[in-house]
């Protein structure tokens, strides 16, 4: 199977869907001539021309709203936000229009649109440019929220998102763009709302999605070396949420840690923690733990910024807590 990057997987999905459906177009800052700020749309202007690959001025509220109107009237836009930090300028359009028009019209209109771009911290970018905003979007009824962590999942889910008749928030990450993975050559799609068990285990469930997946896999590897078998549930999609897979894993392991790079308060992690305690109460051997970013804006200093985010050590400490082990029982080698 060919091994490609996450960036290339996203590009392939857009390319294939544009080839398949004339109504699909791509719009955003620097997506056309510059081939994307992170080179995700490389070559698409050459292939599809300026009618379907469109550079916008730096006017997030405006072009996001134009995308929503075009979707309401029958097109299928892909709106790229250069990063999700700048989606905040368009939040009104997303929440008050994209998420509401169908409901307020009594179902007369659909808004088939994908909003996509890199979300969450990269490196050395300080507070305004390092925000993981999924909890904000997940809060809103009327939006779907998808957050794949591998090239395979990214391609299959983006194709589904583009074909979906609802507004989909599609979360990528700058640091994930260079991640590699196997992606089949032929056509495939992945349904929204299906988690993927990335590792089987009996001792503890580690739930995560998006960029922290790698950290969680690294932690599971370390735990395995110490005789603890962790099961990794990669949500892939936050709305709809695959509760069935979550509960069946927790009912098997009886212990759960959720790893989420958002802030902790009113987060995806805290919500899932509540769902589990409500639906798996009798199966839990310990309270659910969450590992999130610290409840602070991101500092520029690199040592601080790494320590603000989830780390392998923080996940190990949380696993110790749900397994009632003394702090420091599970150590990375060399420590």
């Amino acid at each position: 199977m060919p091994v490609i990057t996450y960036r290339e997987a996203i590009r392939q999905a857009i390319d294939e869907e544009m080839a398949r459906d004339e109504r699909v177009f791509l719009m955003g800052e620097e997506v056309a001539r510059y081939n994307g700020a992170y080179k995700v749309s490389q070559g698409l202007l050459d292939k599809y021309g300026p009618r379907r690959v469109i550079d916008t001025p730096i006017t997030e509220a405006g072009f996001t709203g134009i995308g929503i109107g075009a979707a309401m009237a029958g097109l299928r836009p892909i709106v790229e936000w250069m990063t999700f930090n700048f989606s905040l300028l368009a939040l009104d359009q997303v929440i008050n229009n994209a998420a509401k028009l169908r409901h307020m019209s009594g179902g007369q209109v659909n808004i088939p649109i994908v909003f996509r771009g890199p979300n969450g911290p990269a490196e050395y970018l300080s507070s305004q440019h390092s925000q993981a905003l999924q909890s904000l979007y997940a809060h809103i009824p009327g939006l779907l929220v998808v957050a794949p962590a591998t090239p395979y999942d990214a391609k299959g889910l983006l194709k589904t998102a583009i074909r979906n008749d609802n507004p989909v928030i599609f979360l990528e990450s700058e640091l994930m763009y260079s991640w590699q993975g196997e992606v089949p050559e032929g056509e495939y799609t992945i349904p929204l709302g299906m988690a993927d068990v990335k590792r089987q285990g009996r001792d503890v469930t580690l739930i995560t999605y998006s960029k922290p997946l790698k950290l969680v896999q690294e932690t599971a590897q370390l735990l395995a070396e110490m005789g603890v078998e962790a099961e990794i549930v990669d949500l892939r999609s936050i709305r709809p949420l695959d509760e069935v897979t979550i509960y069946s894993s927790v009912k098997k392991t009886n212990r759960c840690v959720i790893v989420d790079e958002t802030w902790p308060f009113a987060s995806v992690a805290s919500h899932i923690g509540w769902l589990i305690s409500r639906n798996c109460f009798d199966y839990l051997d310990a309270p659910v733990e969450i590992v999130t970013s610290e409840d602070v804006p991101m500092p520029y200093n690199h040592r601080l910024e790494l320590e603000v985010q989830p780390t392998v050590d923080k996940i190990l400490r949380a696993v110790e807590r749900v397994m009632y082990k003394q702090a420091g029982t599970f150590q990375r080698s060399g420590q």
Partner: peptide
């Protein structure tokens, strides 16, 4: 990114 920076190393170039 140092503590002696004009924004205590929290803002960096842009801030």
């Amino acid at each position: 990114g140092k503590a002696t920076g004009c924004s205590k190393g929290k803002g960096g170039s842009m801030h």
